[in-house]
Nucleic acid binder design. Structure first.
Lengths: 350, 350
DNA sequence: GTGAAAGCGCTAACAA
DNA sequence: TTGTTAGCGCTTTCAC
């Protein structure tokens, strides 16, 4: 039982030109919506395109154009292993795509600082850049800057943390509400019938991804694990030192912490605290993003599970989407859906 | 702080020809290792290539060649939701790649039948096909058939279940030992301090993926959960009806089954049994592959976790690898590493 | 408004 | 053994 797909060669603009009885140049003008073609001619060409089922060969088009894609990532500049991972993947992909007419660059701006981010977005030169991927807070100023960019024909995607109220073309990242739900389910199940309090570490109330995680977390905690007492979020601003300073109070005020959900960055602070204060009954810890640090913590049993998203996939996906948008080509949503990865000590591999 | 990557235009064969003081045709001959070029000339050209850091523009090359890639998948023909998912992804990708000079087809052969598989591999016409992806058992006859294919210049990848003793170019699928370890960890943790027996359903002793999963599962069970009693594998041959017939005996002989690891296909049989025999204390169930059935079971709380691998990624990866191999181009191992996905009810999404 | 022709980077006859 | 030339599918001057 064989299934094959035998449409020998696809139609080219030559075929269109012949059927529509016009020249190559005219077909090209219609194809690229260039002005200066009579209505009638446009229709003739479009009919031929429909009739033959023509699809443009993007590779050939880019070759002829000498087109070069220019994409920029705007990332937070704080110390953050996960962001470093993304940065590394950008560099890696950039090397690989130098010979595919695609240039990647990145800028780092102060974290959780909407004005700095807006300024960075405004600094993008629409004549030089085809697409921008933004990782940052969702605020009116950021929305305005994105709007400005869009008005100048730049494609914009939000990365890791969505900015749905803006005119961004796509969001590249996990469903953070579902990620929070997953963390809750894992923590709840791993705790078995233990009772006590759950400490939640977050980054910033400005960060939509952090808020969404908390939302999903609370939902499942309330629904499936009502016997556990979830504390208010500790806002660590992704800063290990700040977290280290915040934790003593939290543990003094709450003697019976049985679980910790570290929903943002700065895990180093948490680990340092736990190591120093060898708590009698080690709490079950679920953290975010597989990085060298969380990987080690997982291996040593200091973290029980890590919810993550693949930095390589994130970057490749963002670039594929920006490229497709630049060419007004469709994307494959299944390929671009970033999965919520769950890592236990056993499946984190090399 | 901006990082950019400014090597304006890349060198072309024209540049090589000029530097090496030869014609375009000669450069092409060297590039494609065609015969009939003097040693000295070859060296001159290669030096120019190295000096200029030339990298061939594959898109342009394929355009000139009119090259069409032809890849075939050989899949088992039993009723199996996961295989159907793969098949669907092949169809989907085939449609998308019709305009990228890539043709995909598939054949289905009897499952767990090395001779049928070998026959199917032998039936591949090396003059028509550039690459073959094989999902099937690892036996001497299969190895020989693969060897024959390789000798005729066809690229071969193993899919889902590896065939490492063969000359296959790559394996596309998860690390099944790690998958088994993960299942054990999940099952063990979810069981808390419950005690009793663990039922393991497998497909066939011929299937390397099934064997590897069992291996990893036993390893972690013995190490971390020695208080649980893991039973011998029940060989269900991925057949729901067979599984349904096997289960009553298993449950009669073992009154205290607290956990089930369904490591292969045929989940429908397991679910039907569990529904019909409403066991007092529902065992914790970890199964493999996210399919419509296992998805529903997760949502309803009949499965506690599902270990999976993304069918779309599997197919895209196999095609990318076969394409790269056909062009003797490097692959990006990070992009091709198939992740062990863990699904709970909370993160399976649409 | 429309068309002819050159050319993007590479390959493949065919000559020499 | 090497070079010349046409052409893959598309874009882009520059004429008409």
């Amino acid at each position: 039982m064989k299934h094959s797909n035998d449409n020998l060669s696809n139609p080219t603009i030559n075929d269109i030109a012949r059927v529509a009885e016009v020249s190559l140049a005219t077909v090209d003008r219609v194809l690229n919506a260039r002005p200066g073609v009579r209505e009638v001619t446009v229709r003739k060409v479009n009919e031929a395109i429909a009739e033959l089922g023509y699809v443009r060969d993007t590779a050939a088009a880019n070759l002829a154009r000498g087109r070069v894609y220019n994409f920029t990532f705007i990332l937070p500049s704080n110390e953050n292993e996960f962001i470093s991972l993304i940065e590394a993947q950008i560099g890696l992909l950039a090397r690989g795509m130098r010979h595919e007419r695609t240039k990647l660059s990145f800028v780092r701006v102060a974290a959780f600082d909407p004005m700095a981010l807006a300024t960075a977005i405004d600094a993008v030169d629409p004549t030089q850049v085809d697409g921008v991927a933004i990782l940052g807070p969702e605020t009116p100023s950021v929305r305005d800057s994105i709007s400005h960019l869009k008005a100048h024909g730049v494609t914009v995607v939000s990365l890791v943390s969505d900015i749905p109220s803006s005119e961004r073309d796509n969001y590249v990242g996990v469903d953070n509400i579902a990620a929070g739900r997953t963390a809750a389910q894992l923590l709840g199940r791993f705790l078995g019938n233990a009772r006590g309090k759950i400490l939640v570490l977050t980054g910033s109330m400005l960060a939509r991804d952090h808020l969404e995680r908390r939302l999903g977390f609370d939902e499942v905690m309330a629904r499936d694990f009502a016997h556990l007492d979830v504390l208010a979020s500790l806002e660590g601003r992704d800063d290990p030192d700040l977290i280290l300073r915040l934790l003593p109070d939290a543990f003094r005020d709450n003697k019976d912490i049985v679980g910790i959900y570290s929903s943002a960055a700065g895990n180093d602070g948490l680990l340092r605290y736990l190591d120093a204060h060898d708590v009698a009954r080690r709490p079950v810890v679920v953290a975010h993003e597989l990085t060298p640090l969380s990987r080690a913590a997982l291996a040593q049993g200091r973290f029980d599970a890590v919810i993550s998203q693949d930095a390589g996939h994130l970057v490749r996906s963002a670039v594929r989407i920006m490229r497709a948008n630049s060419d007004s080509m469709p994307i494959n949503p299944a390929q671009e859906r970033i999965r919520i990865d769950i890592y236990l000590k056993e499946n984190m591999l090399p």
